[in-house]
Structure formats: C-alpha cells, structure tokens
C-alpha cells in the first residue's frame, strides 16, 4: 500500500515535470517538423537565467522573466538561424539544433563556469507540505505540480479558444492550407519556436532548483523529451500529457519493484538455473532497466501504432 501510494505520487510528479519539459517540443515538432535537439539546452538556459535574475530581484520575478528571456532567445534563433535553414529541409534544421546545443553548452560554461551554481528553492516554499507514512512531501513539489497543470490548462485554452491558437492548430494539421489562407506562416513559426523554448525555459526555472543547475543538466535530460512527444503523438498536447504520465509512473514503479527478468519467466513456469549462459540477463532487475523502459515503449509504439497514442497524423 505504502509502496503503491508513494510510487504513484512520485510517478505523477515526475510525469508532470516531463510533460512540462516536452510541451514546448510538442508544439515545435508538430508544427515545424523540427526535431529540436537543443530543447534540453533551452531548459538549461531557463535555469541559469532564473538563477541570475533571482540573485538580483528574487525568485518570483525570475519565474516570469527567465522564460521570457529564453523565449526571446529562441525567437532570435528561429529568425536568424532556423528560418535560413528551413528551405533546405528537416535534416539541416535538425543538425542546426545539434550544433546549437554545443553552442549553448559553451555559452553556459563561459557565463557561469564549469561547476554548477547554487540555485535554490525559495525559502517561502521550502517546507514539507504534509507527511505521509513518515515521509515528507515538499511544498515545492506541489508548486511544481501546480505550475505544470496550470501550463497544460493554459496551453489547451490558448490552442482551442483563441484566434492565434486556432491558426496554430490549423498549421499543426494542415500547414499548407494555413499558408494559402494568407497567414504569415514564417511568423507563426517564429512565435511557436519562441513559445516552445519559453516553455522549456519555464521548466528550467522550476526544475533547476528542484534538481541541479550545472552545465551537464541538459545532457542528463537527454533524449527522453523526444520519447514523450513521439509516444504522445504528433500534434497532440493531450497525448504528450498522457505519455509523460505513463513514462513517469512506469519508471517509478520499475524502481520500486524488485522484480528480475528471470523471476518473470519463473512465473511462467520456466526454470532458469544459474549456470545458463544467459544468466546475467535473467538477473537484470526492473530497476536496472528502468531508464530504458521509455525507449522500449517508443520502439513498440512506433511499430504498432506509428502515429503515437493520440496523434492526428503521421509525419
């Protein structure tokens, strides 16, 4: 019971965080077709900017300002970099973001050094919210949950209830028609890219102090955001939300359960003695393979349902 409650709780928190990190990417990828390899780097930028701004004026202004700064940076990158590459196709775009990730990494090292910065949770949120079975649930985690749910609701409202959102929606599903209708698609692209990176920046603002803020934080996040986007399905924010929750919960449960591959086969009535040549594979526990489960999910989903969980179209 205790195990299930906590795993669920931790899984949901982690899933929401994943969603927050990948929401921007879903927009960018669905709309522009750009596999933004620098997305995690914008997340990192968000954390560093938030640290810098909160040094000067405190956490709350930073919560608003840092994502804006990241968004402006993202918009500039789109306007003066990506747009230029766009006409050559998706591979050059992707490689552009590849190179950009290097540059942002170096920018951070030059600006703040190779060792991390002490970006901390604001004192006002630094207390245990409640205690369950003797374990504290920090208030800051609740705050993170609120922010990411708020973000989901706001994005959803913008996309379905506003004019801009409708144009974006239209471009998501039918990019060419949107252009023929006279919308300035390049400008929409720029705003989408700016918005998407700003969301990554926001994730950085509240993830950077919950976890770590150092030059390797982007690498630590890795390619998991792609998994969320693809598994969720192209063009679907809801899909990304569900995918993030599934991945978060699956990963947490696989850590919590001490089940090995062999014991699973044991349940099926297969006896695998320890001198079998594949012994080491049977002793792999779920915990061992926890970090690769999202990728397993990715491959399986793409084989059996190439449009993802909630996707509206294939690429």
């Amino acid at each position: 019971m205790e195990l299930v409650v906590f795993s669920l709780l931790n899984g949901i928190v982690f899933g929401l965080l994943l969603f927050m990190m990948s929401a921007g990417l879903t927009l960018i990828f669905s709309m522009m077709g750009v596999l933004n390899f620098a997305h995690a780097s914008f997340y990192m930028l968000g954390a560093y900017f938030a640290f810098q701004i909160s040094q000067a004026v405190g956490f709350w202004p930073a919560l608003v300002l840092a994502p804006l700064v990241v968004g402006v940076a993202g918009g500039l990158v789109e306007r003066y970099g990506l747009r230029r590459v766009h006409k050559h196709g998706h591979v050059p775009e992707l490689l552009f973001t590849f190179g950009l990730a290097f540059l942002i990494q170096e920018f951070v090292v030059l600006g703040w050094g190779r060792v991390g910065v002490p970006y901390r949770v604001p004192e006002i949120l630094n207390f245990p919210l409640f205690t369950l079975f003797g374990t504290n649930f920090p208030a800051y985690r609740a705050f993170m949950v609120l922010i990411s749910i708020g973000m989901f609701v706001a994005l959803f409202a913008i996309l379905t209830r506003t004019r801009v959102g409708l144009i974006v929606q239209a471009s998501l599903t039918h990019p060419h028609i949107a252009a023929t209708l006279g919308h300035n698609v390049p400008r929409v692209f720029m705003y989408v890219f700016a918005g998407g990176t700003a969301l990554a920046g926001l994730a950085g603002v509240i993830g950077g102090n919950a976890f770590v803020t150092n030059p390797s934080m982007a690498a630590l996040l890795g390619t998991i955001v792609f998994v969320v986007v693809i598994v969720g399905g192209l063009g679907s924010l809801t899909g990304a939300f569900i995918a993030a929750m599934v991945i978060g919960i699956v990963q947490t449960f696989s850590v919590a359960l001490d089940v090995s591959v062999g014991s699973f086969f044991g349940l099926l009535g297969l006896d695998l003695s320890s001198n079998s040549i594949f012994y080491e594979y049977w002793t792999l526990t779920l915990t061992d393979i926890a970090p690769v489960t999202p990728y397993l999910l990715l491959v399986l989903i793409l084989i059996f349902r190439p449009m993802g969980l909630m996707g509206k179209r294939e690429t």
């Binding site: 195990l3 795993s7 931790n10 928190v13 982690f14 003797g134 915990t287 061992d288």
Partner: peptide, 21 residues
C-alpha cells in the same frame, strides 16, 4: 542494496522511498 543507472536519474525520490522503507 541498490544499483541505479549512471548519470540518468533526474528524480531520486523513488530510491529515497526505498531507503526510507
């Protein structure tokens, strides 16, 4: 005793939960 993947974990809360338990 627990072995976790190197440099891939963002959130150690599930592991902490196990230690606590």
């Amino acid at each position: 005793a627990e072995l976790h993947p190197l440099a891939r974990i963002q959130d150690f809360a599930p592991y902490v939960q196990k230690i606590k338990a």
